[in-house]
Nucleic acid binder design. Structure first.
Lengths: 284, 284
DNA sequence: TTGTATGCGTTATCAT
DNA sequence: ATGATAACGCATACAA
């Protein structure tokens, strides 16, 4: 039984197995270094006691936590509504399930990668209070990936002095922070070119206020491509009024009845490839 | 600058601010206990150094990690295919996005709760290798929730001796493990009663092999309810042949075109309530 | 092969 | 109000 009511430690296991704490540690870290019979004794003692190595002590001893962090913005609409760039409509009840953008996809990929690397994944989110908890997260991981949000670049740079930091969808800065971005501008240009050239679309409209860097870039790409559209659209981007629904619902409406979905029949003369799957949302 | 090339510690901050390490610690844990000017000095020094408190050391010192764990089964189809109870069809390319059942919903709720409690969330999954990593997770959290999977009840009980353990969708056992389950049997009974009484369905079929406890209970409920069906169905449950598609795709087909979805028009004489939303899948 | 002893960074209990 | 110091549980260089 544990010495003082707490969780059993190496000392408890060592005592029960009649060995020293070093041997106990060896059994778990360098099994080949102890005799078979001794190892069996230790393992049995550990099992009988319900011994679980403390990651805190282990991390402190070897200088790393064995976990990677994923830091995202607030999961409630109150914060998330700013992300799409569309002003939100009349106040609605916050729905935790309305998580916009690509977050889940990226997170799932991150999970898989961590799992393959044998690392734990620490999820954490910005508090709506505005008080930064970055430090609280940074202190418990060996590396930290950060979704776009209210975190200042300064704080990112600061955190990057302690551990490797990776920022998603941010304008790359000089410094110690690593960045992963997509070609927003080129993407929208290609999209528009496709609509015009392949589908013969003659009138377009950019929906969403380009307030965030990503969206600003997309709008820039839109404007660039509009120059060669048959019917150039110089109208300003459409906000909430034009969109007709608050942005918070956009993520819910993927493939929902009544929503316009581009159904492209595979054109062999065009390399675009896979058709959109209306029912291809993520599983619940 | 850090003493030896590593991350800055309390010693570095203390030295830079001209105080002792105790004072540094007080500034972060009991701010009111130090003089304003001293506190300012310490905070400035910490900021200049990019100091981030070590969660390992902190956890070791006060005996808790400040994190909760969520342990799930393997995220690849190879393992996940067993969960639905439907044998899988011909081998397919594992798609990480095919995560069956309620997992994402529960996980999201868990995230929100952790976030509200100011706790970190540690995600972890069963390795396909079969080697248990439960201990690795249990050692780094103050409590652990476990999705159904290949983990033995014995190991759950064992882990529960170190930290509180919560098991989802398991047959409750006597012991230290906490359980959260749903009324599978009653749910299916109610479902069948609804189909028969409200929609006049006269023939039904249970799809899926009742191999897991949850599914066995649902099948039991189905059999119980079948007794009062107009046309009792004593046919065995339908396996992969009858389902027509491998189970791994079921989660993708929620609300997909061609799938049968119960569209109930709210019947005021019936308390059932909300109609099913075909497009109500989760955001991507 | 196994034991002894030290250090990891922080907290908290004493002193001062 | 602040400083010195003993845990906390584990890993590991060094002894034996």
């Amino acid at each position: 039984m544990p010495r003082r009511g707490g969780r059993p430690t190496v000392y408890d296991v060592a005592e029960r197995a009649g060995v020293s704490i070093a041997t106990v540690s060896f059994v778990f870290k360098q099994p080949g270094r102890v005799r078979d019979t001794t190892r069996a004794d230790v393992l049995r003692a550990a099992r009988e006691l319900g011994y679980v190595p403390s990651a805190s002590a282990r991390g402190l001893a070897n200088g790393s936590t064995g976990a990677l962090g994923l830091y995202s913005f607030d999961m409630l609409l109150e914060t998330a509504k700013f992300v799409s760039g569309l002003p939100s409509g009349p106040a609605e009840e916050p729905d935790p399930r309305s998580f916009p953008l690509y977050v889940d996809e990226v997170q799932r990929g991150f999970e898989l990668e961590c799992w393959q690397q044998g690392m734990a994944l620490l999820l954490s989110a910005e508090r709506s209070s505005g008080v930064s908890v970055m430090a609280g997260v940074a202190g418990r991981v060996d590396g930290l990936a950060v979704f776009p949000g209210a975190i200042s670049t300064e704080e990112l740079e600061l955190t990057a002095r302690a551990i490797p930091v990776l920022a998603f969808s941010r304008a790359p800065q000089d410094g110690a922070v690593h960045y992963v971005t997509v070609d927003n501008r080129g993407g929208v240009r290609a999209l528009l070119a496709h609509l015009v050239d392949v589908h013969g679309v003659r009138q377009t409209r950019f929906v969403g206020a380009p307030v965030l860097p990503d969206l600003a870039e997309r709008f820039a790409g839109y404007q660039e491509a509009s120059a060669r559209t048959a019917v150039p659209d110089d109208a300003p981007p459409v906000g909430a009024e034009g969109a007709g629904r608050p942005s918070s619902r956009l993520s819910w409406r993927r493939g929902a009845p009544g929503r316009a979905v581009v159904r492209e029949r595979p054109a062999r003369s065009h390399g675009a490839g896979r058709a959109a799957r209306p029912g291809g949302g993520r599983p619940g």
